[in-house]
Design a protein around this nucleic acid. Structure first.
Length: 437
RNA sequence: CGGGAAGUAGCUCAGUCUGGUAGAGUACUCGGCUGGGGGCCGAGCGGUCGCAGGUUCAAAUCCUGUCUUCCCGACCA
């Protein structure tokens, strides 16, 4: 992409309404613009990041045999009356009436919708287990939206739903999702820690929140030091095998959100206790037959008797992750994207646009990188070097190829790594191999 | 929903206390000089001062109402 032809309205000043780092940087980097409180438009750069996160999430869901669907944003109130939640949900649910005087709502979540779809289609235990997910915009009319896209009213969420014949099956589905989430967050460059969550009236130990650590997190958390070292990266996981050992490993040590903390346990941990601030980026939940019973989602079991299916739901806040990743990874100059979600893998900074030699070298690099399939943003604007550096750092290009008269004369380019700040003078070939490497 | 703050040029803000021709920086346009970390000089463009009432000869400024946004708290299946 040539920057001179792109739509990237970066800001030097921080708009007054933005207080926290991710909100400030998303506005300054031209990723989003606020429409009204908690509702945002996504501009090209922000949308690229959103789509990349979405893609990672999608791939990991597909990898465990969860099938993608797409349910509507608008749902009929009757659906929610069936589950009893129409009255329970409160003013967070945006309700309205269509032209035929039917009560409608903008979905804050989709348990009812998916349960109806499932109930209508599945009759036999032989068709179980089943897992379905979608990535869709939701709306919750928060009393007080804040933190930019992290606590918006309209937000993009991946929500998945599992259907099993019995508790043991539900546990297997839950474990699949649990491990899948660990992988997903690692791929997104995040350290996510699963923490036991309040299961409300359902009870049991089958609910976890996934929190990432960031100094500006919304709540205080505490966990065992070992969590900082745990990783699944480079491990091939057999999702059809027994996942309980992995789940046990990630739930065996102490980890608690604000309201779940136990001071005695923490005292006993001593030096091994870590306290930090966290941002919730996912929540998985087993709720048994809470929806399947009232919504009539039952199947014929092996004995021919109908049984209500055991269900679970599994959410990842996709749009929230954009902000969360920035909170976890930025400096005073701008965003530092993990490679997997960076809007562009590399940038070319032409320090002297209009200079024949510099232009030629940049064009050459630009063409070659595109041929190699590298997503590259070429800053071909007629702007000062300083302005180009500032924008490149602001939007967080992981690799920056800096082309100036000095290097061109010597047949080298300068390669800067956004994260480390390291700058090396290299041949073009060497730079390419570093970027792709 | 309780408490607090702010709405003036695209953006960041001054001016409001003490009423009297609408300001600065930045961005943008044009010209010139520049060219390795958000340049310099000059000339321009750009504002129903959130909105509605009221007081006054006169309101960005005082009064009343209202809308919007932000912050703290409560809330966040």
């Amino acid at each position: 992409m040539r920057l001179s032809q792109y739509f990237l309205p970066t800001l030097k000043d921080t708009p007054a309404e933005a207080q926290i780092a991710s909100h400030r940087l998303m506005l300054r980097a031209g990723m989003v613009r606020q429409s009204s409180a908690g509702i945002y438009s996504w501009l090209p750069l922000g949308l690229r990041v959103l789509k990349k996160i979405e893609m990672v999430v999608r791939e990991e869901q597909n990898a465990i045999g969860c099938h993608e669907v797409l349910m509507p944003t608008i749902q009929p109130a009757d659906l929610w009356r069936k589950s009893g939640r129409y009255d329970d949900y409160g003013p967070e649910m945006l309700r309205f009436v269509d032209r035929h005087e039917r009560d409608m709502l903008y979905g804050p979540t989709n348990e009812e919708q998916i349960t109806e779809i499932f109930a209508e289609a599945v009759r036999s235990y032989r068709e179980l287990p089943q897992m379905l997910y979608h990535i869709q915009w939701k709306f919750r009319d928060e009393v007080r939206p804040r933190f930019g896209v992290m606590r918006g009213r309209e937000f993009l969420m991946k929500d998945a739903y599992s259907f099993d014949l019995d508790g043991a099956g539900a546990r297997r589905s839950y474990n699949k999702m649990f491990v899948s989430y660990l992988k997903t967050y690692e791929r997104l460059g995040l350290k996510a820690i699963p923490m036991a969550a309040d299961t409300g009236p359902i009870g049991g130990d089958m609910s976890h929140e996934f929190l990432i650590l960031a100094d500006t997190g919304e709540s205080e958390i505490a966990c065992h030091r070992d969590f900082l070292e745990m990783s699944l990266i480079n491990q091939s996981i057999d999702f059809d095998g027994d996942l309980q050992p992995i789940v046990d490993r990630f739930t065996g040590k102490y980890a608690a959100t604000d309201e779940m903390r136990n001071l005695e346990t923490e005292k006993a941990l001593g030096e091994d206790l870590v306290t930090a601030r966290g941002i919730e980026v996912g929540h998985i939940f087993n709720f048994g037959t809470k929806y399947s019973k009232p919504m009539g989602a039952s199947v014929a079991g092996p004995d021919g008797q109908d049984v209500a299916v055991e269900m679970g739901s599994y959410g990842i806040g996709v749009s929230r992750l954009v902000g969360a990743i920035i909170e976890a990874s930025h400096d005073e100059n701008g965003v530092i994207w993990p490679d997997s979600v960076a809007p562009f893998q590399a940038g070319i900074i032409n320090l002297k646009s209009g200079d024949g030699d510099c232009d030629n070298v940049c064009e050459d690099i630009y063409r070659k990188m595109r041929n190699l399939g590298v997503e590259v943003l070429y800053d071909d604007r007629d702007a000062r070097a300083g302005a180009k550096f500032a924008d490149a750092d602001l939007i967080g290009l992981p690799w920056q190829i800096i082309v100036g008269p000095r290097g061109v004369k010597n047949g080298v380019v300068e390669l800067k790594n956004r994260k480390s700040g390291d700058r090396d003078e290299l041949s073009l070939e060497a730079a390419f191999s570093k970027i792709s490497g």
